[in-house]
Design a protein around this nucleic acid. Structure first.
Length: 833
RNA sequence: GCGGAAGUGGCGGAAUUGGCAGACGCGCCAGCCUUAGGAGCUGGUGGCCGUAAGGCCGUAGGGGUUCGAGUCCCUUCUUCCGCACCA
């Protein structure tokens, strides 16, 4: 008898799938489509079982939908630009392209080894000019629309390397290559994409995603966009005519409690403000220190609040009060106006600041209910809404009333207005890096910023570049790249030497899959319209914000360019859990990886696939357990032996799913098997359609196999037709999860056509039903007995059976029955006094 | 601090609609088979009491709703994740 040989079987079927091209997707509007996508990988390091889990989930769903008759698009590609390739080049002297392509070869080999049902003809790699020219094309369209623009922005700067550092290259505030060199901040002119233009739409369109996206991802994006309603109010500076300080506040109702105006250390008005103030030199010194220390976000939250008085005063436009102007380290220049009003009684940060510097407190909001606030009893700020006091004409109003009326009054008196602010900032895409998409603009002395004309795309990345990790952008050191002709005047021009953030590449790649070889456009509108939106996207939670938000933004820009019809690119998103070992995520740097190839070599990829699906529900983190794999391996061996053993006489029997099943003449064994098979199929189908809990699908299929074993010998009292049907159902249910062994078993059962073109079988409700149902009898909620009734038993019959059951009768004899609850087909609960 | 998710045997987990808690698997125990077993097969396996029949307890803690709660409500605790001085 042949043994299960996963290595031979897996190779055999992968070759067969390649030969017949079963997974190729054809754009065919007459067929219902299903676009299933896993996030494209960054080809670096080794693929381990954490990656494989992601692809296994996606592949099972793709294969299931193919079996359901959908035209499935399931592509794969490479997020091939990025910093690690450049770092490897600096450290090992390899070219980023050589390093990246070697990784791609390895990744492709591993993914093929696992038999994922990709349409490899659609493979893309973002570092190829055929791909990145469209990044440039999109950039130019955005430039035309005013969505791409240029402004000054801060970057991390290592004075030792004399180069810009990515955030990943800043380690605890120090340079990654110089452990003792503190990273500084430097201002550079950079390119930005105006994602903030879509702030509201990005927020509102989340309504379209509530059914298909995990709530926590939506919440994270919502917080990231951070919309808040408030008001801008101008405080005039005493003694400097025309210099008004605009503050942003969400609590204009507390404005009669202002003790000071606080400015960020980089506030643009500081220069004028401090002009002629005594002690200016010392203040400049403090400002310099404050500006430098604001490098690290994590420290900022816990840093002590510090500040100093500028010597100037501002006038509260509501009360006319004169309040001091301070500089404070906790005021953010990036948010609001970079200036806030300090209301110590009603803001916790202001409370702490005022306590430290002895600024006065004034209560102007009292709780609507409960004890009134008293200054001598306050140990923290009262930040709730309430009723105004000591607030001039607004005294007595509620906060809600005052918020509206005071903003309106500020507007009519011309010193303020209501305003909505967002936390979301425009997307800085300039990188002073080599291994990325060149930004397609030129700088001409005469014409200024000149876009590269479309017919000159792509602006190719030169291959021969010295990567030292030092100096300015690597491309700036390539004269033949830098020096160019101005397309407008023909005079000398300098090329932009920055490259694009690689998040640009991954913001639209899924459109390219629909039409990957188009050299006239990023993709064909009609083809994309057929495949979009993505029906199911599968990936890690790590991309919950940036990648997914940028992708949504790109979709809206493309819609406004008339390229796509959807507001949202992704209908459903699934975020799978991580694979852990020793309680932490697998990663090469931690040295706790289980290599995908090692797994496949030792057990076969089907075993690896089954284990990752079985060991935990897909959204949960999964702790890798070598003994658990043995279990999955054992199970596949059992199934193989079971079918091998019985297949002989079944080979020539054709399975006709439409043929009626005559239960009346079936033997008890047959009834058991048919019922179990249809019950299993019903629940597994539900797992694929709705629940996405493949761990229970595997468990159910294991139960079916256990039932088959329990009914041995299957040659007795089971007709070959029934047995063949049940075994065929078993194999078809395994097909999405462990496709290679399923194909092999399908063949062993006598089929000559590939399983990958078979349909998912349909369960029959009438065949899932039990003839007899076990009823639980409870007394006061405790189980006291059980009995069997016919499926058709009435409520009355069930009640009588329960009360007449000898054991129950004895237990309730002489007691008063208050109530009898009958839940048909489930239980009877007798309530005694 | 704000937001989110979770807490069930020795372990991973199941319980889909409020109805037998622990499916399925791992591990462990016993037996069979075998020259051998890190192969295969059969059976057992939440805790306590009991020879047994059976009983009691049990889903992080406390309270509530209900004939009935892992599931619903209130509350406390713990863990993990995200954001973090956002005015």
């Amino acid at each position: 008898m042949a043994e299960y040989d996963p290595q031979a079987i897996e190779k055999k079927w992968q070759q067969e799938w390649d030969r017949t091209g079963v997974f190729r997707a054809e754009t065919d509007p007459t067929r219902p489509k299903y676009y299933l996508l896993e996030m494209l990988p960054y080809p670096s390091g080794t693929l381990h079982m954490g990656h494989m889990r992601n692809y296994t989930i996606g592949d099972a769903v793709a294969r299931y939908h193919r079996m359901r008759g959908y035209n499935v698009l399931h592509p794969m590609g490479w997020d091939a630009f990025g910093l690690p390739a450049e770092n490897a080049a600096i450290q090992n002297g390899t070219h980023p392209r050589a390093w990246t392509n070697a990784n791609i070869v390895e990744f492709r080999r591993v993914l093929r080894r696992f038999g994922f049902s990709y349409d490899w003809q659609r493979e893309i790699s973002t570092c190829e000019p055929e791909y990145y020219r469209w990044n440039q094309w999109f950039f130019l369209r955005m430039l035309e629309k005013g969505i791409a623009f240029r402004k000054k922005s801060r970057v991390n700067w290592c004075p030792q390397c004399q180069t810009v550092l990515a955030n990943e290259q800043v380690i605890e505030g120090y340079c990654w290559r110089h452990e003792t060199t503190l990273v500084e901040q430097k201002e550079l002119e950079q390119w930005f994409l105006r994602i903030t233009k879509y702030s509201d739409e990005l927020l509102e369109d989340m309504d379209q995603l509530t059914d298909g996206w995990p709530e926590r991802v939506l919440v994270m994006q919502q917080n990231w966009i951070g919309k808040s309603k408030g008001a801008r109010v101008r405080f005039d500076v005493d003694g400097i005519a025309g210099l008004g300080l605009e503050v942003f506040t969400t609590r204009i109702d507390t404005i009669y409690g202002v003790s000071a105006v606080l400015l960020a250390a980089t506030h643009p008005s500081l220069d004028r403000l401090l002009d002629g103030v005594p002690g200016r030199a010392a203040m400049d010194e403090r400002l310099r220190a404050m500006r430098q220390s604001s490098v690290k976000a994590a420290d900022i939250a816990t840093a002590e609040k510090v500040g100093f008085f500028t010597g100037r005063f501002a006038i509260n436009p509501f009360s006319g009060e004169r309040v001091p102007i301070w500089v404070a380290n906790f005021v953010l220049i990036e948010y609001g106006t970079g200036a806030v009003m300090c209301v110590p009684a009603h803001d916790q940060r202001d409370f702490e600041f005022a306590e430290k510097y002895s600024l006065p407190l004034k209560i102007v909001i009292q709780p609507l209910q409960g004890n009134l606030l008293r200054l001598d009893r306050m140990s923290e700020a009262y930040t709730e809404h309430g009723r105004l006091e000591e607030s001039g004409p607004y005294t007595g109003l509620t906060s809600d009333e005052a918020l509206e009326r005071m903003a309106a009054d500020a507007k009519s008196k011309n010193f303020g207005s209501s305003e909505i602010t967002y936390r979301l900032k425009d997307w800085g895409i300039s990188r002073q890096r080599y291994w990325g998409t060149p930004i397609p603009v030129l700088y001409c002395e005469k014409d200024g910023i000149v876009p590269v004309p479309d017919d000159q795309l792509p602006v190719r990345l030169p291959e021969d570049v010295a990567l030292t990790g030092q100096g300015q952008s690597p491309l700036a050191g390539v004269p033949e790249f830098v020096h160019a002709k101005c397309p407008k005047c023909g005079g000398p021009a300098r090329r932009e030497t920055d490259t694009m953030d690689t998040f640009v590449d991954s913001s639209w790649y899924f459109y390219r899959y629909t039409d990957p070889h188009d050299d006239c456009a990023p993709f064909d509108k009609k083809i994309a319209a057929y495949w979009f939106p993505i029906d199911q996207y599968v990936g890690g939670i790590t991309h919950a914000i940036l990648h997914l938000l940028y992708s949504r933004f790109f979709c809206k820009v493309m819609r406004d360019l008339g390229l796509v019809n959807n507001d949202e690119p992704i209908a459903r998103l699934f975020t799978q859990g991580m694979v852990q070992k020793g309680g932490v995520a697998m990663s090469k740097s931690r040295g706790n990886v289980v290599g995908a190839i090692d797994m496949a070599d030792k057990y076969g990829c089907d075993t690896g696939r089954m284990y990752t699906l079985f060991a935990a529900p897909p959204e949960k983190d999964l702790e890798w357990n070598e003994q658990g794999i043995e279990g999955s391996s054992r199970f596949l061996n059992r199934v193989y032996r079971l079918i091998e053993k019985h297949a002989g006489p079944l080979k020539s029997i054709a399975v006709d799913w439409n043929a009626s099943v005559d239960l009346a003449s079936a033997t008890p064994k047959e009834k058991n098997l048919i019922r179990k098979a249809h019950q299993t199929l019903k629940r597994v189908t539900n797992d694929f359609e709705i629940r996405w809990h493949f761990n229970t699908s595997v468990a159910l299929i294991m139960e079916l196999v256990n039932e088959l074993s329990a009914q041995e010998p299957l040659e007795q009292d089971v007709s070959p037709i029934v047995l063949k049907r049940v075994l065929a159902m078993l194999v078809l249910m395994l097909a999405p999860m462990t496709p290679h062994i399923a194909e092999e078993l399908w063949e062993i059962l006598g089929n000559s056509t590939t399983l990958s073109r078979e349909s998912w079988p349909l369960y029959r409700e009438d065949l899932t039903r039990e003839e007899q149902i076990e009823i639980i009898v409870q007394i006061n909620g405790r189980v006291r007995g059980k009995f069997l009734v016919d499926d058709s038993a009435s409520e009355d019959e069930t009640r009588k059976r329960a009360l007449n059951d000898p054991r129950i009768a004895a237990l309730i004899a002489g007691k008063e029955i208050l109530k009898v609850i009958v839940v048909q087909k489930k239980l009877v609960n007798i309530v005694l006094k």
